[in-house]
Each structure stands twice: as C-alpha cells, then as structure tokens.
Design a protein around this nucleic acid. Sequence first.
DNA 1: CATGGCGGTTTCCTTGAGGTAACCTACTGA
DNA 2: TCAGTAGGTTACCTCAAGGAAACCGCCATG
Lengths: 125, 125
Amino acid sequence: MGFHQIPNVFDLNCPTRMVLDRLADKWAMLLLRRLMDGPTRFNQLHRDIQGISHKVLSQTLKKLERDGLISRQAFATVPVTVEYRVTPLGETLSGTVAQISQWAESNITEILQAQDAYDTRADIL
Amino acid sequence: MGFHQIPNVFDLNCPTRMVLDRLADKWAMLLLRRLMDGPTRFNQLHRDIQGISHKVLSQTLKKLERDGLISRQAFATVPVTVEYRVTPLGETLSGTVAQISQWAESNITEILQAQDAYDTRADIL
DNA sequence: CATGGCGGTTTCCTTGAGGTAACCTACTGA
DNA sequence: TCAGTAGGTTACCTCAAGGAAACCGCCATG
C-alpha cells in the first residue's frame, strides 16, 4: 500500500529525495566545501566563490541554515559582522563533500577524454 | 598570475567546477545510484525513477554517457533493447554516491526538525 | 562630499530547464 | 484494426531560477 519499511529514494514522495535535491546543488555543495575550511563572512564568501551572485549566495545560505547544516552568527560591530559556520550536523557531511571534490579533481582528465571520445564518435555517425 | 598548481574549485575557470556542476544534479545522482544496482533498460529506469520525464531521462543518460560514467549498449532484438550500465570510471564514484544517499536517509529526521525550528523562529521574528 | 564596505532585500527581466505531447520505426497480441 | 511495447527525437510552451542593479542603514576613509 505504498508503505515501505526501508525508504525508497526512487519514490517520488520519499523525503530523502528532498534532501538529495537540496544537496545536489552546485552552490550548496561549493558553499559547504568552503565553510568546512572555517567560519567565513558573507562578503568573503562572495569574493571566494567566483561566479555566485549576491542574491543567490544569500538564498543558498538561508536554505543551508534552514536545513541545519550551517549556522549564522551576527556580531554587533559596526558595520555588522556576520559569520557563517558549519554545524555539527553539517560536519557529518564533511567526509562526503571532501570526497566528491577530491574525486572531481582526480578524475577531471579522464572525464574530458571521455567527452572528446564521445564527441568524435558523434561526429562520425 | 591566475596560475595554480593545485586546482582551485572556487575559481570560476576551474574545470573541476564543471564536474561538480554535472554531479550536483538530482537526476544524475539518482540515475547513478539506480544503475549501481545493476544494468537497466530505458523504460525500466523511467518506471523506477518516479517523477523523471521521458525527455529528461534521455538527456541525463546522454550527459552521463558523454562523461564516461555510464555506457549504453543496444541489442538487436525486436523491438530494440537498450541497456545502460555504470562504467569502471563510474564505479569509482559508487562509494561516494552510496554515502550521500545513506547520509540523506540517516539524517532526514534531524533536517526536518531543523527546518521546523527555523520556521518557528522565523514566525516569531 | 562621495565613495566604499558591510549584509542584506527587492524589483525587474531574461533565458533556459523541463513538462507535455506528438511523432518515428518495427513488431506483437487481442 | 487498434492498442501497446521499445527507445527515442522534436516542437511548443510555461514557469521559475538566477543575473543585474538599485536601495537600505550606518560608518570610515580619501
């Protein structure tokens, strides 16, 4: 009856899908990766993560905070200072996130080769 | 001078970013995860992965094939049978992908709680 | 005096992702 | 003969993500 003891990720209504959708976002992934190097301020993140817009950075930070993966701390300096840091829950993802970006760096060459080969084949056909 | 010995993922022009963008896609992730359970045919994938459209499934499979993560094999049956399977390169991602979906399943409760807490706080403010 | 930094929000606009649905060949079963 | 299966491609349209830019308060620096 649509009841599963073990949640089925492939099921449309599986809440795990929601988590996956959230995580499977390049900006979220990149932000998490960056914050794992240490607490960082808004504009510092904006400078470091090239290509992200002011708005999207703000939105993505909010989503991650809502999910409890990062926390926001404002200091009453002038002008106000805001620091974002990974929460303990977020930390439990650090191994995985590190693994992904390390995989990407290790296998970029092989992927580019595969793309070349694919495109060449496509040209012939 | 913009030269890095160690590629910088946060740099806009880092090819690793491209890989991350590709991987950070819910359908790609879900497909990889599904194909790691064994070679599967097009329409079977379409039935299993709820919510994906015919078109997007086709497009995502192509991208993954182009990146060398999965391979496509057509059999001259009638009607034609097409099987998709993870390549050796794709296999090197299996640990990571499994980790992600396992993390999602393990932490969904905590995330939902964090969202509730966040939304409650937001209501008060 | 005005520019810039800080940490955002809001508005406007564009573009591209993705859904729907039709079409394709070729065959089988009712 | 009509429907269904298999594995797609194509055309069309819509909606929402995201870029650009202005604006906010408040202060420091040139």
